[in-house]
Write a protein that binds this DNA or RNA. Structure first.
Length: 416
RNA sequence: GGAGGGAUGGCCGAGCGGACGAAGGCGUUAGUCUUGAAAACUAAUGUAUGUAUUCCAUACCGUGGGUUCGAAUCCCACUCCCUCCGCCA
C-alpha cells in the first residue's frame, strides 16, 4: 500500500508513476474520498470528545441533575455512533480503492509497456555450441528422470514426477545454496506454506493476483506461491531496531501456483508447473539502504548462476511489466538452448515500503518510527535451474555431463 | 476430537463499570555521585490518526460484535497460547 499522504504531499509523483505503468486511474476521485473520510472523522471525534466530557460529569452529578444529563448523553451517544458508522464506511470506500494502487516506480526503472521493453543490462557466460539441441523433457524422459504423463493422470496438467539423480541434484543444490546464503548472513528458514488471507494481503498478492493462489476453503488457508509471503509476514506489526538491519532470511519451500491464464504457454516439461521448490532470499532493510541491498541480492543471484556455469543475462524490468508491489525489479534469464533464447530463472524486487506498510513493519529513527523497506529475490528456483543445467550440459548421445567443479556442487557427474 | 485455564505497554504483572493509556517491578535512556565503572538516588520512557505540531483531541488492554450515558473491566463469537485425556508423523 502507498502512503495516503502522497495525496497531500506529492500527487505529481503518484500520477507519473501510474502513467509509467500505463494505468489510468482517477486520482481526483481518490482525493475526494480521502477528504470526505478525514472530515467526517474529525466531526465524529469532536462529538465523541463532547460525549466523554458529559459522561465524566455524570459520575459526580447530583441526583436531580443526573436525569437531565443522562438524557443529553443518550442522544449524543446515538449521534456519535452514527457518525462513526459513517467514518467506517468512508474509510472503507477510500482504502478499497487505495490498496489497489501499485507501488511507486523507481526513477531508475526503464519505462515501457511489455516484457519486450525490458532493458538488458548484461550478458554473462559462454554459450556452448550445441547442434540440434534437445529440450530438457526429451532428455530427462529418455533417461527416466522426469514423468509428466503419469503426473497428469494423477494430478492433472503441469505436474511432474522427478526421479533418481535429478532428485539428488535438487537436494544438493538446495543444500549448497543454503550454505552459501548462510555465509552471507541469511538465516536459513523453512516457513509455513499454508497462510491466512492476511499474509497475502500484506505482501500485495491479494487482491490483485488472487486468481493465482490455491485455496483451502475448509480451513480458510491459502497455499503460498513463494516463501516471500510467510517470510515477509514474519516481522509483521514489529518495530525493528535500525542497527539490526538488514535482517536477511533464506527460505526454502515448495511453491504452488495456479498459473491461471497461461494455458498453452510453456506446456512442455517442468518450466511452468503448479508445484516447485525454491530457495528465496528476503531482506528487511533500512529505507536508506534498500538500493544497495537490491544490488547485493542481484549479485548473489549472479554468483549462483556463474558457479552453476549457466549462461545468463540480467534484465531491468520495465515499468509496464512490473508487479504491483515492486518499485524496481531485475530478472535473470538463463540461456535455454532448445528455445535458442534466454528465459527467466530468478527475479529480485525492491518493494520499498509497499509491503512493509501493509504489514506494519517499522523501525525507529531519531525517536520517530518509519516504515522499513523489504526486498526479495530468487536464489534457486529448482525446476528451472534443473532445466538450464540439463540443456546446457547435454551431450550428443542424449546424456548430460557436468564439469568437475559443477559435479562437486551437484554431487553427480553424469546423467545417463 | 473431549475437559479446563488464560491473552494487559520492550518484558513481568496489577486492575475486573467512571479519577485508567493503564499501579508496581524489570529493562532502556539521561542526570547526580565517582578518576572511571558498579551500586544508590532523581527523572524520562507505547503506537497511530487529526482542521494539533514541544500544548490539545481521538483510537488502541488478542480480534470482531453487543450491553451501557460511560467498557481493559459485563455479554456473545472468533483467533491464539497453556494443562490434562484421546489420536497421530
Amino acid at each position: 500500500m502507498l502512503d495516503p499522504n502522497l495525496l497531500k504531499e506529492n500527487i505529481d509523483l503518484l500520477e507519473l508513476s501510474l502513467t509509467k505503468r500505463n494505468l489510468k486511474i482517477d486520482i481526483s476521485k481518490l482525493e475526494e474520498l480521502n477528504e470526505e473520510r478525514k472530515s467526517i472523522r474529525f466531526e465524529a471525534e469532536q462529538k465523541r470528545a463532547e460525549q466523554k466530557e458529559i459522561g465524566k460529569l455524570i459520575a459526580s452529578a447530583s441526583v436531580d441533575e443526573k436525569a437531565k444529563m443522562l438524557e443529553k448523553a443518550a442522544s449524543l451517544s446515538e449521534e456519535v455512533k452514527s457518525l462513526f458508522d459513517k467514518v467506517e464506511e468512508k474509510d472503507r470506500r477510500f482504502f478499497d480503492e487505495w490498496i489497489k494502487l501499485p507501488n511507486l516506480i523507481s526513477d531508475s526503472s526503464p519505462v515501457g509497456k511489455t516484457d519486450e521493453d525490458n532493458l538488458e543490462i548484461k550478458k554473462v557466460g559462454n554459450i556452448k555450441k550445441i547442434d540440434n539441441p534437445k529440450d530438457h523433457l526429451q532428455i530427462a524422459e529418455k533417461l527416466g528422470l522426469i514423468d509428466v504423463q503419469k503426473a497428469a493422470d494423477v494430478s492433472g496438467s503441469r505436474f511432474s514426477y522427478l526421479f533418481g539423480d535429478l532428485v539428488k541434484i535438487e537436494f544438493s543444490l538446495v543444500s549448497w545454496a543454503l550454505n552459501k546464503l548462510s555465509d552471507k548472513g541469511f538465516i536459513p528458514t523453512v516457513p509455513p506454506v499454508l497462510v491466512r488471507e492476511k499474509a497475502l494481503y500484506g505482501t500485495g498478492f491479494f487482491p490483485d493476483d488472487a486468481e493465482q493462489v490455491y485455496q483451502i476453503p475448509n480451513d480458510d488457508l491459502y497455499l503460498v506461491g513463494t516463501s516471500e509471503v510467510p517470510l515477509a509476514a514474519l516481522k509483521s506489526d514489529e518495530i525493528l531496531s535500525l542497527e539490526n538491519l538488514p535482517i536477511r532470511y533464506a527460505g526454502f519451500s515448495t511453491c504452488f501456483r495456479r498459473e491461471a491464464g497461461t494455458y498453452g504457454k510453456d506446456t512442455s516439461g517442468i518450466f511452468r508447473v503448479h508445484q516447485f521448490d525454491k530457495v528465496e532470499m528476503f531482506s528487511f532493510c533500512d529505507p536508506e539502504k534498500s538500493i544497495e541491498e537490491h544490488e547485493f541480492i542481484l549479485s548473489v543471484e549472479e554468483e549462483i548462476l556463474q558457479e552453476l556455469e549457466i549462461p545468463y543475462r540480467v534484465v531491468d524490468v520495465c515499468s509496464g511489466d512490473l508487479g504491483a508491489s515492486a518499485s524496481k525489479k531485475y530478472d535473470i534469464e538463463a540461456w535455454i538452448p532448445s528455445q535458442n533464447t534466454y528465459r527467466e530463472v530468478t527475479s529480485c524486487s525492491n518493494t520499498t515500503d509497499y509491503q512493509a506498510r501493509r504489514l506494519n513493519i517499522r523501525s525507529k529513527k531519531d525517536g520517530n518510527t518509519q516504515i522499513i523497506h523489504t526486498l526479495n529475490g530468487t536464489a534457486i528456483a529448482v525446476g528451472r535451474i534443473l532445466i538450464a543445467l540439463i540443456e546446457n550440459n547435454q551431450q550428443e548421445d542424449g546424456t548430460v555431463k557436468f564439469s568437475e567443479s559443477l559435479s562437486n556442487i551437484l554431487g553427480i557427474e553424469k546423467l545417463s
